[in-house]
C-alpha cells in the first residue's frame, strides 16, 4: 500500500532538505561523490526518519537497529543525514574532507557518531551485516540489520561470500539494499562489467528479491515494509534492488556516470539548487496524486 499523503509529503520534505544539505556539503568540501550520494538519499531518508529503531541520545544502544553503508563513498550524503538527525553537529559538515576533520570521503565509525561500520573499501558491508545479524540471533535480540551496497560494488567477490552466509544462516533479520544506479567510475555498469540479470542472481543466491524505484519514497517503503514483515522468523533474507538514478534530483547530472565524483563552482551550486527545487515540486505533485 502506498504511503499516506501526509507521511509521503513529510518524507519528501526531509529528503529535499537532506539533498540540499548534501549539495551544500559538496560545495563546502569543493567536491564529492555527488552522484552516488544522491541516488541513495531517499533510502537514507526513510531509514533515519521512518524505520531505524535508534536513540540519538544513546547511539551505542545495544538493541538498536543497525544500518551499514557498504558503499562508503556515499558519505557525502550519509554524513549530512547523521548530522541532521542530531548524532553530530551540523557544523562538522563544513570541515568535510578538510585536513584534521573527523569526516572524510569515507566515514570512520570510531570518529563519527551513529556510523555502525567503517566502510570505504568496497565489498565489506554485507559480511559485517551478516555478523551483526548473527549476533542478534545468538544474543536473542530482535534488532534488524540493514545494509546498502552499490551496484558496481558487486564486482567484489566478497559480497557474494556474504550473500551466501546470509542465505545459509537464514538471516531474514538482515535486509540488503542494492543501489542500482547503473553507473560506476568508468562507465555504465553493463559496459564495464555486466551485472544483469541481477535480480535472477540474487534469487539464485537464495534471496527474497524485489526490484523497486529506489527514488520513489512510497514504493521503497512498501518494499521495506514487506521485508520487515518477514524478518521475524529465520527464513530467506530479503534483497531490495533499488532502481535509482545517479545524481537523482539534479537534472543536469542525473544518470551521468561522469558525475560519480565531481567538484562544483558557485554557478553550478546555484543551478543544482534550483534543479533540486524543481524536482521537489514534481515529487510533491506525485505524492499528492498517488498518496493514500
Amino acid at each position: 500500500m502506498a504511503l499516506s499523503k501526509q507521511e509521503w509529503l513529510a518524507l519528501e520534505k526531509k529528503a529535499h532538505e537532506l539533498r540540499k544539505l548534501t549539495l551544500q556539503t559538496v560545495a563546502w568540501a569543493g567536491s564529492g561523490h555527488i552522484g552516488g550520494g544522491m541516488s541513495i538519499l531517499d533510502l537514507l531518508t526513510v531509514m533515519y526518519h521512518k524505520y531505524l529503531n535508534i536513540k540519538v541520545e544513546d547511539p551505542k544502544w545495544e538493541d538498536r537497529d543497525r544500518f551499514i553503508l557498504s558503499k562508503g563513498h556515499a558519505a557525502i550524503s550519509y554524513a549530512p543525514v547523521l548530522c541532521d538527525k542530531g548524532f553530530n553537529d551540523v557544523e562538522m559538515l563544513k570541515t568535510f574532507n578538510l585536513s584534521g576533520s573527523k569526516m572524510g570521503m569515507h566515514l570512520d565509525s570510531n570518529k563519527v557518531v551513529g556510523v555502525d561500520a567503517s566502510t570505504g573499501s568496497l565489498g565489506h558491508g554485507v559480511s559485517i551485516a551478516a555478523g551483526t545479524a548473527l549476533a542478534a540471533r545468538i544474543l536473542g535480540k530482535d534488532y534488524l540489520t540493514y545494509v546498502a551496497t552499490g551496484d558496481g560494488e558487486l564486482g567484489e567477490g566478497s559480497n557474494w561470500e556474504g550473500f551466501m552466509t546470509l542465505n545459509h544462516y537464514k538471516l531474514s533479520n538482515c535486509i540488503v539494499f542494492i543501489d542500482r544506479n547503473h553507473c560506476m567510475i568508468d562507465g555504465n555498469t553493463e559496459d564495464v562489467m555486466k551485472l544483469e540479470p541481477l535480480a535472477d542472481k540474487m534469487v539464485a543466491f537464495g534471496f527474497n528479491t524485489v526490484t523497486v524505484d529506489g527514488n520513489n519514497i512510497s514504493a521503497l517503503c512498501e518494499a521495506i515494509d514487506a521485508a520487515v514483515a518477514r524478518s521475524k522468523e529465520p527464513c530467506a533474507p530479503s534483497c531490495i534492488i533499488m532502481d535509482t538514478k545517479k545524481g537523482a534530483g539534479i537534472k543536469t547530472i542525473e544518470g551521468d556516470y561522469l558525475w560519480h565524483y565531481g567538484g562544483i563552482d558557485d554557478a553550478m551550486f546555484e543551478k543544482f539548487n534550483n534543479e533540486l527545487d524543481e524536482d521537489y515540486k514534481v515529487r510533491c505533485e506525485r505524492a499528492e496524486k498517488e498518496g493514500e
Binding site: 543497525r66 561500520a117 559480511s127 551478516a130 555478523g131 548473527l134 549476533a135
Partner: peptide
C-alpha cells in the same frame, strides 16, 4: 567481516 559484525554487537 562476519567476525567484525559479531564483535561490534558485543
Amino acid at each position: 567481516g562476519v567476525a567484525a559484525g559479531l564483535a561490534r554487537a558485543g
